[in-house]
Structure formats: structure tokens, C-alpha cells
């Protein structure tokens, strides 16, 4: 199947979002139209305040748009209640955060297993799949370490493993390399790219790092809450 024939994972039309800050309306998104197809490796770039995180939050069902239609993995987010959105995030979307956001009291493998546990996967399979994905991200020797005992790069790899373990249709990553040094960030990006290639998982991440932009297959520039061009490789 050619890339152009693939089903869209994300379809956003006319997305608006405004926040009320000290009585003033701040327009974070001003009519964003966006389609991301299955298997794409896309970066949303833009300066701070351009609306990257807001857009990712709306796509991830964490926030709701003020106006506009949004479909993710075949579901119309506007018609879903909080519980359905929670299930969508659990089964269809993997999240990678800038600050890793692992559960500090759980070990690497327990953090990864946590998602499968929420999905009701049985213990043996949970362990097997978690070990496999941690091996894939190069952390097979660190599985019993807690986040506090790991470097930033290692923690972000655990976060990638956590996001990937349930094989979601979409991975949303909000500035995943922002807290990492150049070398570690580059290695992480290689890893994400490799997982995208091998598994065909769709990646959408925000960044303002030019190195990251260069590695993306598709780049979308966001400025003042609007899409201001981009490129496709």
C-alpha cells in the first residue's frame, strides 16, 4: 500500500481553542486543519506559545477543542465522554512527555507493565511483552531500576517503551528530547524512528529543536495557532 492510500489516524478540521487568562482570551489555536496518516513520522514545529502542546493535548483527548471536528483512530472525540476518552488514551494512544513522567515508585518494567495491567493483560504476557520492549529500547539490564536511579535518557527510553508496549495506533510525544543533551536526544530519535519503521506506528511529536525537525519525515510549522506551512520528505 502506498503511503497516500493509508487511512488517516488523525483528522482535524477547523480546530479553535482559547484560554481565559486573567479575564483575557488567549487564542491558542486558530482554525487548525490537519490530517496524519497511519505510519507517518511527523514533527510539529514552532516557537513557544505557538500552540504545539495545545494541539497535541486536543489530539490526545486530554483537552477539548473550543470549536472544530477531531477524529483520532476512527473516533469522533467531540462525541466522547471522559470515560471513553480515557479508554481511547489507554488503548489507541501512547504518550511520551518532555519530563518523562514515569511513576517514581515503580521500576522500569513495572512502569511499562502498568499500561498492560490497565488493559487487563494477564501477568505472564505482561511480563513477556514488557521485557521484550525494554530489550528493544536497550534497557534489558535496567528493568528493575526505579526512575530515580536512571539517567534522563534512560528514563525517556522507558517512557518510549511504556508508550509502545500496548502497540497503540498513535504515539504523541511532547518535546521528547527537550530535557536531553544533543547526543542522547539524537539516539532517542533514532530509536523512535526505528520503532516507526519496524512497527509502522504513527508518531506525532512537537519540537523546536532543528535536529529533530530534520529527522522527521513530515514537518508541520505552527505559528500563532495556525499551520504556517511545512514539508514532506
Amino acid at each position: 500500500m502506498k503511503k497516500s492510500d493509508k487511512q488517516p489516524v488523525i483528522e482535524a478540521k477547523g480546530i479553535y481553542k482559547a484560554y481565559n487568562t486573567d479575564g483575557l482570551a488567549v487564542h491558542a489555536l486558530n482554525g487548525v486543519d490537519l490530517t496524519i496518516k497511519s505510519g507517518e513520522f511527523t514533527a510539529i514545529a514552532g516557537p513557544s506559545g505557538s500552540g504545539k502542546t495545545t494541539l497535541l493535548n486536543i489530539i490526545g483527548g486530554i483537552d477539548r477543542p473550543g470549536k472544530g471536528d477531531i477524529h483520532v483512530a476512527g473516533s469522533d472525540l467531540n462525541t466522547m465522554n471522559n470515560r471513553q476518552l480515557s479508554d481511547l488514551r489507554l488503548y489507541k494512544i501512547g504518550f511520551i512527555f518532555q519530563a518523562y513522567n514515569l511513576i517514581p515508585v515503580l521500576t522500569a518494567i513495572e512502569n511499562v507493565e502498568y499500561i498492560l495491567l490497565l488493559q487487563g493483560v494477564d501477568k505472564t504476557e505482561r511480563r513477556h511483552r514488557s521485557e521484550a520492549i525494554l530489550r528493544e529500547v536497550g534497557l534489558d539490564k535496567e528493568i528493575n531500576r526505579r526512575p530515580g536511579d536512571m539517567s534522563g535518557g534512560q528514563q525517556q527510553r522507558v517512557a518510549v517503551a511504556r508508550a509502545m508496549v500496548s502497540e497503540p495506533e498513535l504515539i504523541l510525544a511532547d518535546e521528547p528530547t527537550a530535557n536531553l543533551d544533543q547526543k542522547t536526544g539524537s539516539a532517542l530519535l533514532d530509536l523512535m524512528k526505528e520503532l516507526n519503521r519496524k512497527r509502522g506506528t504513527t508518531f506525532l511529536f512537537s519540537t523546536h529543536d532543528s535536529m529533530v525537525m530534520k529527522r522527521a519525515d513530515r514537518l508541520i510549522n505552527l505559528s500563532d495557532g495556525k499551520i504556517a506551512g511545512g514539508r514532506k520528505r
Binding site: R83, D87, F95, N101, L118
Partner: peptide, 16 residues
């Protein structure tokens, strides 16, 4: 607060 929010974000239900 942040950590619990992240747990909810990745699919943890309020009951959990």
C-alpha cells in the same frame, strides 16, 4: 498532583 494527572492521562480510571 502532576503525577496523578499523568496516570489519568495514560488511561488510569478515576476508580483506580
Amino acid at each position: 498532583f502532576h503525577e496523578i494527572g499523568v496516570m489519568k492521562c495514560i488511561g488510569t480510571r478515576p476508580l483506580n
